[in-house]
């Protein structure tokens, strides 16, 4: 019986294209920083690329990534029209520190709050930081777990490709 299940799973991947090769953003109801309800399926950017970055106030590499991008974000937006959405997974221990941190750092990002990890789970994020790139049609075309200095260089190369209408190979 176990074998048949395994075969089914393998079969479902081998017999392409049974499923769409790319994923879109699932619908999860979370909140914005000022308490408005927000359906993640409505994330869009007028056909321009979108970066979704999962972070937390207690995660040093996450803050390093978002602060490094913040320094060049204005240029990125001007050149490619990209939008970055920073999804905080701070739970009720730290949720009240999110807005002071974001505003204190003067981030220009859209910030969403996911205190019980519903969106994190739906996006299959194991741990933070985890960054996704979404093309103008809403397909998730790339993702990266963890952050090292300079990772934003590769990310921006991909954003530029998307903005030029090029395909990103997995």
């Amino acid at each position: 019986m176990k074998l048949s299940i395994i075969l089914l799973v393998i079969g479902s991947f081998v017999t392409t294209p049974l499923f769409t090769p790319t994923s879109t953003i699932p619908s999860v109801k979370i909140k914005t920083m000022d308490g408005q309800s927000f359906d993640t399926a409505t994330i869009s950017n007028d056909g321009n690329p979108i970066i979704i970055s999962f972070w937390a106030t207690w995660c040093s590499p996450c803050k390093k990534e978002l602060n490094n991008i913040a320094e060049v974000y204005e240029d990125w937006v001007d050149e490619t029209g990209v939008k970055l959405i920073a999804v905080s997974i701070d739970d009720s221990r730290n949720a009240s520190k999110v807005a002071p941190y974001v505003n204190g750092q003067a981030w220009e990002y859209e910030v969403l709050l996911d205190p019980n990890y519903d969106f994190k789970r739906a996006m299959n994020v194991n741990n933070v930081p985890h960054t996704f790139l979404i093309d103008g049609k809403g397909n998730i075309v790339w993702q990266h777990n963890s952050y090292s200095e300079g990772d934003e260089i590769e990310l921006y190369e991909l954003v530029k490709k998307l903005a030029n209408g090029e395909e990103i190979s997995h």
Partner: peptide, 15 residues
């Protein structure tokens, strides 16, 4: 109870 005040360059949270 949590209170917050924030503006560009300054964030305060008291709880």
């Amino acid at each position: 109870l949590a209170l917050g005040y924030s503006k560009k360059g300054l964030g305060i949270s008291l709880s």
